[in-house]
């Protein structure tokens, strides 16, 4: 059992999606995350063990390496693709309630800002850590965030801004959320924001990278 979970974790960590995937080249022709997850389920390994011990653990390693600049965006994207291939086999177990998500996370790039790669990386990392992510996209008005919180009252929130000129919109959104939903934690991120700005606008956490957002949510 351990062997297949180790292999599965390795596939996610190094972005081996399935047997036909050419990446990474040194694993050409070998089973990938798709086949190994299927085999693990057939062997009777519980979905929760597959998720936590192989997939979430692998994505944690990926996030850590990204933080340490040992890998970059492309490798993270390949890992996320492998993770998605594995999670597709676990969907029935999520639907039946045999495994549950850790919680809900609403993520958006603030109004006036179209940049989404940072938001997408955080989304992948948080999904990979076992959370359900509701992605509102880019150029998201405050009202849309508030409506989504109303429909998902326990959700944590993540807001991204890449332009110095849209930081003001982030402040407006954070203040609106906090006035209506003071107990919902808000994580902010993006190139121009920092710890000082987080404190100034009343957000709960500044995430300089995807893995720190995961660590904060898992506290």
């Amino acid at each position: 059992m351990e062997d297949i979970l180790v292999k599965l974790g390795y596939c996610v960590e190094f972005g081996k999606v399935d047997k036909n995937a050419p990446y990474p080249p040194d694993m050409k022709g070998q089973d990938g995350a798709d086949e190994l997850t299927k085999q693990a389920i057939e062997q009777g390994i519980s979905a929760a063990v597959i998720l936590e011990d192989a997939l979430v653990a692998a994505m944690n390693r990926v996030g850590q390496k990204f933080t340490e600049k040992k890998i970059f965006i492309p490798q993270m994207l390949m890992s996320a693709k492998a993770m998605n291939a594995a999670v597709a086999h676990l969907k029935p177990f999520f639907n039946s309630g045999e495994i549950t998500r850790k919680g809900k996370f609403i993520i958006a790039t603030v109004k006036g800002d179209l940049h989404d790669i940072g938001k997408n990386l955080v989304k992948m990392a948080i999904e990979g850590a076992g959370w359900e992510v509701i992605d509102l996209g880019v150029d998201v008005p405050t009202e849309k965030v508030l409506e989504t919180i109303q429909a998902n009252p326990d959700a944590k929130i993540g807001l991204s801004a890449l332009l110095t000129t849209t930081m003001g919109n982030m402040q407006v959104t954070v203040e609106s959320i906090k006035s209506k939903y003071p107990s919902n934690a808000i994580i902010i991120g993006g190139a121009p924001v920092n710890e000082e700005f987080k404190t100034k606008i009343g957000a709960d956490f500044y995430a300089p990278d995807p893995q720190s957002a995961v660590s904060y949510l898992n506290r």
Binding site: P74, L77, M78, K81, N120, M124
Partner: peptide
């Protein structure tokens, strides 16, 4: 491409 799971290809094209 990103929506259908081809994350790297979609990012590269962008």
């Amino acid at each position: 491409m990103i929506e259908t799971g081809d994350l790297l290809e979609g990012y590269t094209l962008d």
